[in-house]
């Protein structure tokens, strides 16, 4: 494992921790898209089908368990927790899951590396992860006041994607036969979706003003 991959995993972990910290301590999920969180839960469920059958390393298994557990925990908090759910911005979080899930599933059926069930689910998870942030970005755009923790959550997620691209470039040059077009292209699309957010995030940080995305 190279430094980019490890840093990417750590920023991914940070993003989840920041979000759980916000929900657990402030008891608020204001500005957080339930749609995006449910899509992530589905992403991890589809991707980690091999968690019991395919052992790669202890690190890998533990991280998978953390991402699976935390994604379902966050969904539970927003839907079921009697205090947290009151702060959920239902009015503005209107993105339809199916508009993202269905095209991703069809695409996974059509374009995959191997047409085995687990492989198709893995590919589906890659496509879905690439676009799962969209409801969250739409919600951020509709939210007038983005609090610091929500901004940091999205920032860490974007950083994780950017570091994974560095990881792929590194692996391409250091490992023989390391070519994964599907992973790379969906990963690149996913990272590009953050470009706009990053622009405004850095501007607000540089000018020391509150983050706000233009409608």
């Amino acid at each position: 494992m190279n430094i980019f991959r490890f840093s990417g995993d750590m920023t991914h972990l940070m993003s989840v921790l920041v979000l759980l910290l916000k929900i657990h301590t402030i008891k608020s999920c204001a500005g957080i898209s339930l749609k995006t969180q449910e899509l992530y839960a589905l992403v991890f469920l589809a991707r980690y089908l091999d968690i019991v059958t395919n052992f790669i390393s202890l690190y890998n298994t533990i991280m998978k368990l953390i991402f699976l557990g935390s994604s379902f925990m966050i969904v539970w908090y927003i839907r079921r927790h009697r205090i947290v759910r009151r702060s959920y911005d239902k009015e503005h979080d209107t993105f339809r899951h199916l508009f993202l899930v269905l095209p991703c599933f069809i695409l996974a059926l059509l374009i995959n590396e191997r047409s085995a069930f687990k492989e198709i689910m893995w590919t589906f998870s890659l496509y879905l992860e690439a676009v799962a942030i969209l409801p969250q970005l739409v919600l951020l755009q509709r939210t007038k006041n983005i609090d610091n923790l929500t901004g940091q959550y999205v920032f860490f997620l974007g950083a994780y994607r950017a570091l994974y691209i560095c990881n792929w470039i590194y692996r391409y040059f250091t490992e023989p036969h390391y070519v994964h077009w599907i992973t790379w292209i969906s990963g690149l699309v996913q990272t590009l979706l953050y470009a706009d957010f990053f622009y405004y995030y850095f501007n607000s940080w540089k000018n020391n003003v509150k983050l706000q995305l233009p409608a």
């Binding site: 395919n54 790669i56 890998n60 991280m63 991402f67 191997r114 994974y164 990881n167």
Partner: peptide, 10 residues
């Protein structure tokens, strides 16, 4: 093809 090597990322 080595499946382990394919999906060793998270």
């Amino acid at each position: 093809e080595d499946e382990d090597e394919d999906h060793d990322e998270l």
